[in-house]
Design a protein around this nucleic acid. Structure first.
Lengths: 236, 236
DNA sequence: AAGTGGTCTAGACCACCAT
DNA sequence: TGGTGGTCTAGACCACTTA
């Protein structure tokens, strides 16, 4: 047999989830019911669910059920925001959206997002502050086809995190990302918007984010002023 | 019952491993034998081993056995070396050890390594090159008591990686690390040893590494020149 | 009390490795 | 061929949540 049974079950579950069989935040049928439906034992069904829980596609709660995971503040703060104040405390940043507009994709972004030349992207510029101090300048690129109808108004008035907005409004579930970091100098724009001196050393962080099946859905380039902050990364 | 049975079995296994019951690289008794010894079912024993495999304390090989994991080049390259050439290819760095000496610990390092004031540390300075180009200047601090007998000779003549040396010569198994990254400017030393201009922007990477039970065993501060290289990090 | 996920068991069979 | 880990099953019982 090429693939183990629990891998096949995992695939069926994932297919159902991406198809929208169970909307974000709702409960799946019980493990016993799913095992019966797929014609496998509960143990095998659980092994399939285990994997999706590790990938944060599903969320188990003892006594309550198994749910399609929803992006919330904790997920964003712990998994997708790697900047800490020098005191070590993890705080949620204040996001101030400066602009949002649609434009033709540039070559670099097209390559990262696997878009054809000439495709349209939504470009959003944000300034992030921590405890009132401006620290990050963000440039976000989204494939326009996946985010039709996204306006500055909607982006600014989201009640929760950016990735929660992607998920509940556009059905785009960001599961993981890859970041590349270089040192750079502040340019005129960073100096002005972050109130720092030109040519101050900064981090340039590029992020490519993926949804189900490793499809890229967001490309961003951030510049981080690390005088009173740092970027954290776990090894091992 | 406070802790599940498989957690207790995990603890017993980990205790035996740290006690040195099975030297690094050797095989444990079979799962059936261990289950019998601990008085649990094979399923429960496997669940305990599963966790230690995820933590990379143990290594399973179908048909051969379960082994105490040994640090090798792949582990170092994929888990503990986050610098890539701009072309995206992952290459193993050339390490050139510039100095090794013992000295009294400074306040910062003492706090990180949880050492008392006045304790001795081994301080090692390395220059790392990628494809012949010097890229990183490393300052490594080790608690002297754990690394008695470590000399420049031994450090330079290790056959394998630095963490493999720690493991097989001093019984120190590095399992995970935490890194903090800031932007900085090259100083006189970086400019001289990496052949770059003074005040060029660089990354300052601080790493605290841990062994079993989250005990810190190594503290290092690196400066990385990112003109032709970048640092990678995975999110999610 | 009923329903959910979490733990644990005992055993069968398969895939792989060494000899 | 014999021993190892990998998969899969069927069922019992426990812990937790909700009503």
């Amino acid at each position: 047999m090429p693939a183990p049974l629990y891998k096949e079950v995992r695939e069926k579950l994932l297919a159902s989830i991406t198809r929208g069989a169970w909307p974000t935040g709702t409960a799946l049928p019980s493990e016993a019911a799913l095992a019966l439906e797929y014609g496998v034992s509960v143990g095998t069904l659980r092994k399939a669910v285990d994997e999706l829980v590790i990938e944060k596609v599903l969320l188990r709660q003892q006594g309550r059920g198994t749910f399609v995971a929803a992006h919330d503040v904790e997920r964003t703060l712990y998994d997708f925001f790697r900047i800490r104040h020098a005191d070590g405390v993890s705080r949620f940043p204040e996001v101030e959206t400066i602009s949002l507009r649609r434009q033709a994709v540039d070559a670099e972004t097209a390559a990262q997002l696997q878009l054809p030349a000439g495709a349209k992207v939504v470009r959003i510029i944000n300034r992030l502050g921590i405890a009132g101090v401006p620290v990050v300048l963000d440039e976000v690129f989204l494939p326009a086809t996946r985010f039709e109808g996204l306006t500055l108004e909607i982006f600014r008035q989201r009640p929760d995190t950016i990735y929660h907005l992607y998920q509940h409004r556009f059905g785009v579930n960001v599961l993981r990302g890859e970041e590349r970091i270089r040192a750079c100098r502040a340019g005129a724009r960073e100096a002005r918007l972050l109130a720092i001196s030109r040519s101050a050393p900064m981090l340039e962080v590029e992020r490519l984010s993926f949804t189900y099946y490793d499809v890229p859905v967001e490309w961003r380039r951030s510049r981080v002023h690390t005088a009173e902050h740092y970027y954290v990364s776990d090894l091992g």
